[in-house]
Protein backbone atom coordinates (compact mmCIF):
# COMPACT_ATOMS: atom_id res chain seq x y z
CA UNK A 1 0.00 0.00 0.00
CA UNK A 2 2.73 2.39 1.03
CA UNK A 3 4.77 1.62 -2.06
CA UNK A 4 1.73 2.26 -4.22
CA UNK A 5 1.36 5.68 -2.62
CA UNK A 6 5.00 6.46 -3.24
CA UNK A 7 4.62 5.54 -6.86
CA UNK A 8 1.55 7.74 -7.20
CA UNK A 9 3.39 10.71 -5.73
CA UNK A 10 6.35 10.05 -7.94
CA UNK A 11 4.11 9.85 -10.97
CA UNK A 12 2.44 13.11 -10.05
CA UNK A 13 5.73 14.90 -9.42
CA UNK A 14 7.51 13.68 -12.51
CA UNK A 15 4.85 13.01 -15.09
CA UNK A 16 1.60 14.88 -14.60
CA UNK A 17 3.18 18.28 -13.99
CA UNK A 18 5.71 19.77 -16.44
CA UNK A 19 9.17 19.54 -14.85
CA UNK A 20 9.68 23.26 -15.21
CA UNK A 21 6.98 23.94 -12.61
CA UNK A 22 9.21 22.66 -9.82
CA UNK A 23 12.19 24.72 -10.93
CA UNK A 24 9.82 27.68 -11.22
CA UNK A 25 8.60 27.30 -7.64
CA UNK A 26 12.14 27.03 -6.27
CA UNK A 27 13.16 30.12 -8.21
CA UNK A 28 10.17 32.16 -7.10
CA UNK A 29 10.80 31.28 -3.46
CA UNK A 30 14.46 32.25 -3.83
CA UNK A 31 13.73 35.60 -5.47
CA UNK A 32 10.95 36.55 -3.06
CA UNK A 33 13.07 35.67 -0.02
CA UNK A 34 16.06 37.63 -1.27
CA UNK A 35 14.08 40.71 -2.37
CA UNK A 36 10.74 41.97 -1.03
CA UNK A 37 9.91 43.77 -4.28
CA UNK A 38 9.53 40.55 -6.18
CA UNK A 39 6.16 39.28 -4.94
CA UNK A 40 4.19 42.49 -5.45
CA UNK A 41 1.18 43.22 -7.63
CA UNK A 42 3.02 46.00 -9.43
CA UNK A 43 5.80 43.67 -10.41
CA UNK A 44 3.28 41.07 -11.57
CA UNK A 45 1.44 43.59 -13.79
CA UNK A 46 4.76 44.79 -15.12
CA UNK A 47 5.77 41.20 -15.91
CA UNK A 48 2.50 40.67 -17.79
CA UNK A 49 3.07 43.61 -20.08
CA UNK A 50 6.72 42.78 -20.68
CA UNK A 51 6.11 39.08 -20.97
CA UNK A 52 3.26 39.02 -23.44
CA UNK A 53 5.62 39.02 -26.41
CA UNK A 54 7.73 36.15 -25.13
CA UNK A 55 4.77 34.04 -23.98
CA UNK A 56 3.01 34.41 -27.32
CA UNK A 57 6.20 33.41 -29.17
CA UNK A 58 6.68 30.42 -26.84
CA UNK A 59 3.17 29.19 -27.59
CA UNK A 60 3.99 29.21 -31.31
CA UNK A 61 7.37 27.58 -30.90
CA UNK A 62 5.99 24.75 -28.81
CA UNK A 63 3.71 23.69 -31.68
CA UNK A 64 6.74 23.46 -34.01
CA UNK A 65 8.71 21.71 -31.31
CA UNK A 66 6.03 19.04 -30.86
CA UNK A 67 6.39 18.17 -34.55
CA UNK A 68 10.11 17.67 -33.88
CA UNK A 69 11.35 20.94 -35.37
CA UNK A 70 13.37 23.82 -34.00
CA UNK A 71 12.21 27.36 -34.72
CA UNK A 72 14.96 29.98 -34.69
CA UNK A 73 13.47 32.55 -37.03
CA UNK A 74 10.64 34.10 -35.02
CA UNK A 75 12.69 36.88 -33.42
CA UNK A 76 13.74 38.18 -36.82
CA UNK A 77 10.32 37.56 -38.36
CA UNK A 78 8.77 39.53 -35.49
CA UNK A 79 11.07 42.48 -36.24
CA UNK A 80 10.19 42.31 -39.93
CA UNK A 81 6.42 42.15 -39.17
CA UNK A 82 6.80 45.24 -36.99
CA UNK A 83 8.70 47.07 -39.74
CA UNK A 84 6.13 46.17 -42.40
CA UNK A 85 3.19 47.14 -40.23
CA UNK A 86 4.78 50.47 -39.27
CA UNK A 87 5.61 51.08 -42.91
CA UNK A 88 2.04 50.54 -44.12
CA UNK A 89 0.66 52.75 -41.34
CA UNK A 90 3.07 55.60 -42.05
CA UNK A 91 3.36 55.44 -45.83
CA UNK A 92 -0.03 54.06 -46.92
CA UNK A 93 -2.03 55.57 -44.04
CA UNK A 94 -3.68 52.23 -43.32
CA UNK A 95 -5.75 52.18 -40.12
CA UNK A 96 -4.15 50.20 -37.24
CA UNK A 97 -6.50 47.23 -37.46
CA UNK A 98 -5.57 46.67 -41.11
CA UNK A 99 -1.91 47.03 -40.21
CA UNK A 100 -2.37 44.31 -37.60
CA UNK A 101 -3.79 42.03 -40.27
CA UNK A 102 -0.85 42.88 -42.54
CA UNK A 103 1.57 41.98 -39.74
CA UNK A 104 -0.14 38.65 -39.18
CA UNK A 105 -0.08 37.89 -42.91
CA UNK A 106 3.65 38.62 -43.10
CA UNK A 107 4.17 36.35 -40.09
CA UNK A 108 2.16 33.55 -41.65
CA UNK A 109 4.02 33.97 -44.95
CA UNK A 110 7.41 33.57 -43.31
CA UNK A 111 6.19 30.71 -41.16
CA UNK A 112 4.91 28.98 -44.27
CA UNK A 113 8.25 29.64 -45.96
CA UNK A 114 9.90 27.76 -43.07
CA UNK A 115 7.42 24.96 -43.49
CA UNK A 116 8.10 24.73 -47.23
CA UNK A 117 11.87 24.65 -46.63
CA UNK A 118 11.47 21.85 -44.10
CA UNK A 119 8.87 19.68 -45.83
CA UNK A 120 9.40 20.08 -49.56
CA UNK A 121 13.09 20.84 -49.62
CA UNK A 122 14.04 18.44 -46.82
CA UNK A 123 16.24 20.99 -45.04
CA UNK A 124 16.81 20.37 -41.31
CA UNK A 125 14.55 22.74 -39.38
CA UNK A 126 17.33 24.61 -37.57
CA UNK A 127 19.15 25.39 -40.82
CA UNK A 128 15.92 26.33 -42.61
CA UNK A 129 14.83 28.66 -39.82
CA UNK A 130 18.32 30.16 -39.55
CA UNK A 131 18.14 30.84 -43.27
CA UNK A 132 14.74 32.47 -42.84
CA UNK A 133 16.19 34.48 -39.97
CA UNK A 134 18.85 35.82 -42.33
CA UNK A 135 16.25 36.59 -44.99
CA UNK A 136 13.97 38.39 -42.53
CA UNK A 137 16.82 40.40 -40.95
CA UNK A 138 18.08 41.38 -44.39
CA UNK A 139 14.62 42.55 -45.46
CA UNK A 140 13.94 44.38 -42.18
CA UNK A 141 17.28 46.21 -42.43
CA UNK A 142 17.10 46.86 -46.14
CA UNK A 143 13.52 48.10 -46.43
CA UNK A 144 14.19 51.36 -44.58
CA UNK A 145 18.00 51.57 -44.90
CA UNK A 146 18.45 50.24 -41.41
CA UNK A 147 16.49 53.07 -39.83
CA UNK A 148 13.75 53.01 -37.23
CA UNK A 149 10.21 53.77 -38.42
CA UNK A 150 8.47 56.13 -36.00
CA UNK A 151 5.57 58.54 -36.06
CA UNK A 152 2.83 55.92 -35.76
CA UNK A 153 -0.84 56.99 -35.33
CA UNK A 154 -1.83 57.84 -31.75
CA UNK A 155 -4.57 55.23 -31.42
CA UNK A 156 -2.11 52.44 -32.12
CA UNK A 157 -0.50 52.68 -28.69
CA UNK A 158 -3.68 51.23 -27.11
CA UNK A 159 -2.67 47.68 -28.10
CA UNK A 160 0.42 47.62 -25.95
CA UNK A 161 -0.54 50.05 -23.22
CA UNK A 162 -4.33 50.10 -22.99
CA UNK A 163 -6.68 48.04 -20.84
CA UNK A 164 -9.94 46.28 -21.54
CA UNK A 165 -12.23 45.55 -18.55
CA UNK A 166 -9.33 46.60 -16.30
CA UNK A 167 -7.09 43.91 -17.72
CA UNK A 168 -4.11 44.99 -19.88
CA UNK A 169 -4.68 44.21 -23.55
CA UNK A 170 -1.38 42.25 -23.81
CA UNK A 171 -2.76 39.93 -21.13
CA UNK A 172 -5.89 39.43 -23.22
CA UNK A 173 -3.63 38.58 -26.15
CA UNK A 174 -1.78 35.98 -24.06
CA UNK A 175 -5.06 34.42 -22.92
CA UNK A 176 -6.41 34.38 -26.45
CA UNK A 177 -3.31 32.78 -27.97
CA UNK A 178 -3.10 30.33 -25.07
CA UNK A 179 -6.71 29.22 -25.48
CA UNK A 180 -6.37 28.95 -29.25
CA UNK A 181 -3.17 26.92 -28.95
CA UNK A 182 -4.71 24.57 -26.36
CA UNK A 183 -7.83 24.05 -28.43
CA UNK A 184 -5.80 23.51 -31.59
CA UNK A 185 -3.55 20.98 -29.90
CA UNK A 186 -6.20 19.12 -27.94
CA UNK A 187 -9.50 19.35 -29.78
CA UNK A 188 -8.76 19.49 -33.49
CA UNK A 189 -7.41 17.06 -36.10
CA UNK A 190 -4.53 19.54 -36.49
CA UNK A 191 -3.42 18.76 -32.92
CA UNK A 192 -3.72 15.02 -33.46
CA UNK A 193 -1.51 15.23 -36.54
CA UNK A 194 1.00 17.55 -34.87
CA UNK A 195 1.54 15.05 -32.05
CA UNK A 196 1.63 12.20 -34.58
CA UNK A 197 4.28 14.03 -36.62
CA UNK A 198 6.50 14.20 -33.58
CA UNK A 199 5.74 10.68 -32.45
CA UNK A 200 6.20 8.83 -35.69
CA UNK A 201 6.28 10.79 -38.91
CA UNK A 202 6.86 7.75 -41.10
CA UNK A 203 3.77 6.00 -39.76
CA UNK A 204 1.71 9.10 -40.43
CA UNK A 205 3.00 9.27 -44.00
CA UNK A 206 2.33 5.57 -44.54
CA UNK A 207 -1.22 5.98 -43.32
CA UNK A 208 -1.81 8.17 -46.35
CA UNK A 209 -2.53 11.34 -44.43
CA UNK A 210 -1.10 14.60 -45.79
CA UNK A 211 1.66 14.85 -43.19
CA UNK A 212 3.34 17.69 -45.08
CA UNK A 213 0.25 19.90 -44.84
CA UNK A 214 0.13 19.76 -41.05
CA UNK A 215 3.85 20.29 -40.75
CA UNK A 216 3.66 23.41 -42.90
CA UNK A 217 0.65 24.57 -40.87
CA UNK A 218 2.59 24.13 -37.63
CA UNK A 219 5.32 26.46 -38.90
CA UNK A 220 2.68 28.87 -40.25
CA UNK A 221 1.10 29.00 -36.81
CA UNK A 222 4.43 29.88 -35.26
CA UNK A 223 4.79 32.63 -37.86
CA UNK A 224 1.32 33.89 -36.96
CA UNK A 225 2.30 34.18 -33.29
CA UNK A 226 5.36 36.19 -34.35
CA UNK A 227 3.01 38.52 -36.24
CA UNK A 228 0.77 38.94 -33.18
CA UNK A 229 3.75 39.53 -30.89
CA UNK A 230 5.02 42.15 -33.34
CA UNK A 231 1.79 44.16 -32.88
CA UNK A 232 2.27 44.36 -29.12
CA UNK A 233 5.98 45.09 -29.40
CA UNK A 234 5.58 47.85 -31.99
CA UNK A 235 2.70 49.39 -30.09
CA UNK A 236 4.62 49.39 -26.80
CA UNK A 237 7.62 51.09 -28.39
CA UNK A 238 5.48 53.19 -30.76
CA UNK A 239 8.24 52.58 -33.30
CA UNK A 240 9.55 49.69 -35.36
CA UNK A 241 13.24 48.88 -35.13
CA UNK A 242 14.74 46.42 -37.62
CA UNK A 243 16.76 44.35 -35.14
CA UNK A 244 14.58 44.64 -32.04
CA UNK A 245 13.55 40.99 -31.94
CA UNK A 246 16.99 39.43 -32.38
CA UNK A 247 17.77 37.17 -29.46
CA UNK A 248 14.10 36.71 -28.69
CA UNK A 249 14.16 33.43 -30.60
CA UNK A 250 16.55 32.01 -28.03
CA UNK A 251 14.26 32.88 -25.13
CA UNK A 252 11.27 31.42 -26.96
CA UNK A 253 13.25 28.31 -27.87
CA UNK A 254 14.43 27.85 -24.29
CA UNK A 255 10.92 28.40 -22.96
CA UNK A 256 9.47 25.81 -25.30
CA UNK A 257 12.22 23.29 -24.54
CA UNK A 258 11.86 23.79 -20.79
CA UNK A 259 8.09 23.56 -20.98
CA UNK A 260 8.03 20.23 -22.69
CA UNK A 261 11.55 18.88 -23.24
CA UNK A 262 13.21 18.97 -26.63
CA UNK A 263 11.86 15.50 -27.40
CA UNK A 264 9.51 15.47 -30.38
CA UNK A 265 5.87 14.56 -29.84
CA UNK A 266 5.80 15.94 -26.32
CA UNK A 267 4.70 19.21 -24.81
CA UNK A 268 1.49 21.11 -24.16
CA UNK A 269 0.32 24.69 -24.45
CA UNK A 270 0.45 24.91 -20.65
CA UNK A 271 4.03 23.66 -20.68
CA UNK A 272 5.02 26.25 -23.28
CA UNK A 273 3.42 29.03 -21.25
CA UNK A 274 5.10 27.83 -18.04
CA UNK A 275 8.45 27.69 -19.81
CA UNK A 276 7.92 31.24 -20.98
CA UNK A 277 6.97 32.36 -17.46
CA UNK A 278 10.12 30.67 -16.13
CA UNK A 279 12.29 32.76 -18.44
CA UNK A 280 10.41 35.95 -17.64
CA UNK A 281 10.78 35.43 -13.92
CA UNK A 282 14.44 34.55 -14.26
CA UNK A 283 15.07 37.75 -16.21
CA UNK A 284 12.95 39.84 -13.88
CA UNK A 285 14.54 38.29 -10.79
CA UNK A 286 18.05 39.01 -12.06
CA UNK A 287 17.02 42.61 -12.63
CA UNK A 288 15.51 42.97 -9.17
CA UNK A 289 18.59 41.43 -7.55
CA UNK A 290 20.55 44.22 -9.26
CA UNK A 291 22.87 42.04 -11.31
CA UNK A 292 24.61 44.12 -14.02
CA UNK A 293 23.32 43.63 -17.56
CA UNK A 294 26.63 42.39 -18.89
CA UNK A 295 26.64 39.53 -16.38
CA UNK A 296 22.97 38.68 -16.88
CA UNK A 297 23.36 37.05 -20.27
CA UNK A 298 26.07 34.68 -19.02
CA UNK A 299 23.98 33.66 -16.01
CA UNK A 300 20.93 33.38 -18.22
CA UNK A 301 22.63 31.08 -20.72
CA UNK A 302 24.19 28.90 -18.05
CA UNK A 303 20.97 28.54 -16.07
CA UNK A 304 19.04 27.70 -19.21
CA UNK A 305 21.39 25.03 -20.45
CA UNK A 306 21.54 23.55 -16.95
CA UNK A 307 17.75 23.52 -16.82
CA UNK A 308 17.58 21.88 -20.23
CA UNK A 309 20.05 19.21 -19.13
CA UNK A 310 18.16 18.64 -15.86
CA UNK A 311 14.78 18.36 -17.51
CA UNK A 312 16.28 16.00 -20.09
CA UNK A 313 17.68 13.77 -17.37
CA UNK A 314 14.32 13.76 -15.55
CA UNK A 315 12.56 12.96 -18.81
CA UNK A 316 14.87 10.03 -19.38
CA UNK A 317 14.31 8.77 -15.82
CA UNK A 318 10.54 8.94 -16.36
CA UNK A 319 10.89 7.01 -19.58
CA UNK A 320 12.88 4.35 -17.77
CA UNK A 321 10.27 4.11 -15.02
CA UNK A 322 7.56 3.68 -17.62
CA UNK A 323 9.49 0.94 -19.35
CA UNK A 324 10.01 -0.85 -16.04
CA UNK A 325 6.30 -0.62 -15.27
CA UNK A 326 5.48 -2.06 -18.65
CA UNK A 327 7.81 -4.97 -18.00
CA UNK A 328 6.12 -5.65 -14.65
Amino acid sequence: MKEFNGKQIRQFVLEKVPTVTWILIVMMVYFSVSNSNFLTLDNAANLCRQGAILLILCLGVIVVKITGGIELSNGAVMSLCGMVMAWVMVNLNLPPFLAIIVSMIVGILFGTLNGVFVTFMGIPSFVATLGTQGIAVGLALGMNNGNVIGGLPEGFSAIGNGTLLNIPIPLWAIILVFVVTSVLLNKTPFGVYVYALGGNEEALKLSGKPAWLYKVLAYSYSGLTAGIAACILTSRNMAAQPTVGLGMEFEAFAGAVLGGSYIAGKGTALGGALGGIFILILRNGLNILGIPTYLQLAIFGTVLITAIVLSTLVERRVQKMRDEEREE
Binding site: T132, I135, V137, G138, L139
Partner: peptide, 11 residues
Protein backbone atom coordinates in the same frame (compact mmCIF):
# COMPACT_ATOMS: atom_id res chain seq x y z
CA UNK B 1 20.88 43.37 -47.82
CA UNK B 2 23.77 40.97 -47.34
CA UNK B 3 22.08 38.89 -44.66
CA UNK B 4 19.17 38.35 -47.04
CA UNK B 5 21.53 36.96 -49.69
CA UNK B 6 23.38 34.81 -47.13
CA UNK B 7 20.10 33.38 -45.88
CA UNK B 8 18.97 32.47 -49.37
CA UNK B 9 22.39 30.97 -50.23
CA UNK B 10 22.31 28.84 -47.06
CA UNK B 11 18.87 27.45 -47.82
Amino acid sequence: WQQLVTGIVVV
